[in-house]
Design a protein around this nucleic acid. Structure first.
Length: 534
DNA sequence: TTTAGGG
DNA sequence: CCCTAAA
């Protein structure tokens, strides 16, 4: 019977080891396959809105630290013109920034504008279903989000083990610690992947003439009015401009500085996601990447005529920010909270930090501080296909490395990071889905070796795939068995040929039975002895 | 270090 | 993928 089945597997003379390993423990816990999918209720674009709110908050809280790129100072004597004529109306960010109906892949630099909140674009691209009410748009016309999707081929993984697969298990003698070796940097995984480059103007926020500006807090958990009418006493309610009480208090009552914040920029970053990923996981990925960037509590810095204003206690007039001055040179920068620099950012050439807000695709982004300045005028998040440039001892996957092009301003490379028990921050390995050829190799090895010898499986079929540990192989087998049992419609990711899945089930059944039989044997061999002892 | 299983 | 008890 056993032999017959072996033939069915095409085992071709492979002999089951005479001393099959007994289970190392009797803890056969019931495995629950129900995995709660991480349903991030907050979509990525809502998050951008959150960031917008956050920036507004910063501006509000500390006017002395306002910042840059496209903020314009508007002289108070000139009434500003509302872009859309409804500035005074409140809006809820979540009502405005809707998840876009993204196009399908359209090749490199397809330039899909995901959330361009210029009013026209909102109307055209995003608000198709949600017709904006008056007054809700004006604020939003400031949030520009451009997502460029770029396809990149990465098929170099296909040969990762071909030709190197050992035909025998002779390598047993070489018992290098696979755990360590497995962490060495390897090549990229196989599947084509989306490369989403989120360009510089991912997000920009303009604030135009609005009374009683209030920061947006706690979004998206609470919908808050961006502009509230509950604090008229503080505002110059006739101006019709933004008034930031805290900062403007420093100036004389007569000469207020009117700030027109045209936009904030979020520098470009890159995200890779398999093209087999769902739209929802794409959203999740973007959101988590953005979260990773901003999780460090941004602060606003002020630049005036190219010089950074460090003294927060100076008044605006002392600093030179006054209405009769040339305020064109006033700029704002985004900078991480310095107290939080260490956990999230690390200097060049230092081992990267790891982060995983959740166990999802998005954990594969690395953030790295590359310059002394904490400014975030430009930051990139991307994965690289290259060999890791940090030392191997760090035990990180190559793709966790983020590169940032040189820039004249401070740069930040951001990566998902997760805090472990202690204060240590560890980096989660980058997800690298198994290719079909890898699955095939795994199936073949398990057919011959069984399901309890993952180290041997590793040595046999994945010895050169250093990013696959035997634990990975065991896990993959687990998911393969699961995949084979569910309906094809429920399967996700790169489709595994049904023939392979059939082999998985067959081998799994065979080896389960085999293990059970051996366990039974063992028990009955022991029993007479124990009886004798008794 | 490996295995096994839950998260 | 991660974490970790148990072997």
């Amino acid at each position: 019977m056993v032999l017959q089945r072996r033939l069915e597997y095409g085992f071709n003379g492979y002999q089951v080891p005479s001393t099959p390993r007994a289970p190392r423990s009797a803890r056969k816990r019931v495995s629950s396959w129900k995995k709660n999918e991480d349903h991030n209720r907050m979509c990525a674009f809502d998050l951008l809105a959150t960031v917008a709110g956050k920036l507004l908050l910063e501006v509000d809280d500390s006017v002395s630290k306002i910042d840059h790129e496209e903020i314009q100072i508007v002289n108070g004597s000139k009434p500003n013109v509302c872009d859309q004529g409804s500035c005074n109306k409140p809006f809820f960010v979540s009502e405005i920034i809707k998840p876009p109906v993204t196009d399908t892949c359209s090749g490199p630099a397809s330039g899909i504008t995901v959330s361009d909140c210029k009013i026209e674009d909102i109307n055209q691209k995003q608000m198709k279903t949600a017709s904006p009410e008056n007054g809700k748009l004006p604020v939003v016309n400031n949030v520009d989000c451009n997502l460029n999707l770029v396809i990149r081929d990465n098929d170099d993984d296909e040969n990762s083990f071909e030709g190197t697969r050992p035909d025998t298990l002779n390598k047993k003698t070489v018992r290098a610690p696979p755990c360590m070796r497995d962490r060495k940097i390897r090549r990229l995984s196989a599947s084509k992947q989306w490369k989403i480059s989120q360009n510089t103007d991912v997000y920009s926020n303009k604030i135009n003439c609005c009374k009683y500006q209030r920061p947006l807090r706690d979004y998206p958990f609470k919908k808050r009015r961006l502009y509230q009418l509950d604090n008229p006493s503080k505002s110059d309610d006739k101006s019709g401009f933004i008034e930031d009480g805290s900062s403007l208090d420093a100036t004389s009552q007569d000469s207020h500085v009117k700030l027109k914040i045209k936009s904030f920029r979020v520098p470009e970053f890159f995200i890779e996601i398999p093209e087999t990923a769902t739209v929802s996981s794409l959203k999740r990925t973007v959101m988590e990447a953005v979260t990773a960037i901003f999780s460090g509590e941004l602060h606003v810095g002020v630049m005036l005529q190219g010089k950074r204003i460090r003294d927060d206690n100076k008044t605006l007039s002392q600093t030179g920010i006054c209405h009769d001055n040339e305020l064109d040179a006033l700029g704002f920068t985004l900078e991480p909270n310095e107290l939080q620099l260490s956990p999230f950012l690390c200097p060049e050439n230092q081992p990267l930090i790891r982060y995983s807000p959740a166990q999802t695709v998005a954990n594969e982004v690395v953030i790295q501080q590359q310059a002394d300045s904490p400014r975030i005028n430009s930051m990139n998040i991307t994965e690289t296909d290259h060999e890791m440039s940090v030392d191997d001892k760090s035990g990180l996957d190559s793709r966790a490395l983020v590169t940032v092009p040189a820039n004249n301003v401070g740069e930040l490379v951001v990566v998902p990071v997760r805090k472990s028990k202690g204060a240590e921050v560890v980096q989660r390995r980058i997800r690298r889905p198994f290719s079909v050829s890898e699955v095939e190799a795994l199936v073949e090895a398990v057919e011959k070796l069984g399901t309890g010898r993952w180290r041997d499986v590793k040595l046999r079929a994945f010895d050169d795939a250093n990013h696959r540990t035997y634990v990975d192989l065991k896990d993959k087998w687990k998911t393969l068995v699961h995949t084979a049992r569910i309906s094809p419609q429920q399967r996700r990711g790169e489709p595994v040929p049904q023939e392979l899945l059939d082999r998985v089930l067959t081998a799994h059944g065979y080896w389960s039975h085999h293990q059970a039989k051996n366990q039974f044997k063992l028990n009955h061999q022991l029993e007479p002895q124990t009886c004798r002892l008794l």
